[in-house]
Amino acid sequence: MTLDGAVLCQVGPFRFALAAHDVSSIEVPDARGVYAGRWFGLGDAWPQTARSVRAPGHHVVVDTVEVHGATLPVLAMPAMVASHLVTGFVDVQGALVPVVSLAHAAERRP
């Protein structure tokens, strides 16, 4: 399984990847945005340079956004722990980054 294009998001020290075809736009966040740092226990305040990553019907605010255009192999999740939220891991410059489904992530808010 591969991922054709990924949007790498960074929240604090943590990183995650979104499938590029799931992201509709990248904008400046507004007051209604949900900070992804909440997933990692970082609170609700985002930095001034934050970006809002939008999918149809969903959006999330992250510290920085980086578009990765190459096709990346996806390491599948074992069946016993597989979920719709994290679909696998990709290797970005030697580091494993979880691939997150934004629609499921928005449904399972902390």
Binding site: G5, S25, V67, G69
Partner: peptide, 19 residues
């Protein structure tokens, strides 16, 4: 920067054509 990021995203989403 935001515009360039959006363009890069659109190019990526377009696949090989938008590289």
């Amino acid at each position: 920067d935001l515009l360039a990021l959006s363009a890069e995203l659109e190019g990526t989403r377009a696949g090989e054509v938008g590289r």
